[in-house]
Design a protein around this nucleic acid. Structure first.
Lengths: 225, 225
DNA sequence: GACACACTGTGACCTGAAGCACCGACGGCG
DNA sequence: CGCCGTCGGTGCTTCAGGTCACAGTGTGTC
């Protein structure tokens, strides 16, 4: 249940049981249904969220209305830290891609917490550093890789985080439409569809609605690099 | 001199004079000439650097040898924090684009420092959050903007950080070749050159070797969004 | 002064991917 | 049950931008 998920999240992992219980007391719960928006890019807000159930997408919209997804976050992962440490409006819109629940913590409460606990601060620094590293990787991919390569990479990442291995391959219930997958890799829906079709015809994977079964991780990984 | 630059850097800004002097004592100096490499992507290393003089480029190389620049850092700015908080090999190669000097601080020393000083930790978190926010902006630009737009944006950013306003416009000594500028915006040298030539023909700017004079910031900004 | 080399400027192609148009399949819902 | 909206699949056309090729222009060095 919730408690377990929270305990695994990077914010809590450095805490002892007692501290964890105390921190949890100052957190509140939110729940959303698929498609509902938690907050919009540009909104005010200083809460940090941790997903306890379901998945969300973090997206930005360009001036001409096109959309781009920065990340998909699932159970145990957090978001909203940006407005927390670097005050300012929210930099992305957060939408539930499945029904989802969150625990949230306000700016003040977190900072108060941080003061006496260098280990937690270090944990958060590590967390942010990791995010930054991955953001840089995304930049490199956009510059160096073609669309099929980025699609392959995205699938592998999703598999890594949401996949379940079975004897016919790795089942990945990503809960994304192809449109969303396209926004995630920064390409058009059509091109992504064609890349997927190509992978299928090579026998690397099988498509199911809002999910894929990866049958040849080896080949797919090679295509991704 | 050096001391002033360090005092302005985000790491030091939250410290009182006494603390700053103490911290400075545990830092060491490095100097590089234009073109020399401080460390390579993949190297081991856990030092954090602050530029005290000159400029460096942080770059990555793809498997097939093409290069991409993540950032240009000048006086007062830091780099190398990633390997610090998220241990692992260096994620980028750092090369001096002008003769340059740095102050550096080791992993251990910094963490020791952090423990008693929540304000410093917060400063670092803010710093990282800012970097992450900007990295996300770069991703959005790669997805949404065309090459001329990205070139315009890069020039404005460089102007913001290294520009000097004079009566004939903003002089930006970026110290980058067009090749490097191209790597910074993720495009080919030729296309960047053509974009620049176009801006010149419109009277928005004037080109000088390794530097530009922006004559119509207004128009250039409009082209950038 | 002259040679070399690194950088800039510009044209002629070629190609990956976006855009468009359309079709079929599914899943609510009146 | 049939209608409609969302989603997935596929061809055709168009175009931004990468690649190639080459010509100027500095600038440091012997």
């Amino acid at each position: 249940m919730d408690n377990d998920v929270l305990r695994q999240s990077p914010l809590f992992s450095a805490l002892d049981d007692e501290a964890a219980t105390a921190l949890r007391a100052s957190m509140s719960e939110t729940r959303l249904r698929r498609g509902e928006v938690l907050f919009h890019e540009g909104d005010e807000g200083d809460k940090l969220y941790i997903v306890t159930e379901g998945k969300v997408k973090l997206g930005r919209t360009s001036s001409d209305g096109r959309e781009n997804l920065l990340a998909i976050q699932g159970p145990g992962q957090m978001f909203g830290e940006l407005s927390l440490f670097d005050p300012g409006p929210r930099s992305a819109t957060v939408t539930a891609v499945t029904d989802a629940t969150f625990s949230s913590l306000s700016h003040e409460d977190l900072l108060r917490w941080l003061d006496g606990r260098p280990a937690v601060a270090r944990g958060l620094l590590a967390q942010l550093a990791g995010r930054l590293r991955r953001a840089n990787d995304v930049v490199a991919d956009l510059v160096f890789s073609d669309v099929p390569g980025r699609v392959a990479k995205a699938l592998l990442d999703l598999a890594d985080r949401f996949g379940r291995t079975a004897d016919d391959g790795v089942h990945v219930h990503h809960d994304l439409t192809q449109e969303e997958l396209a926004q995630l890799v920064g390409a058009s829906r059509e091109t992504v569809n064609k890349a997927l079709a190509d992978f299928v015809s090579r026998g690397w994977l099988r498509l199911e609605p809002r999910s894929v079964v990866i049958m040849d991780i080896e080949r797919l990984s090679r295509r991704a690099r």
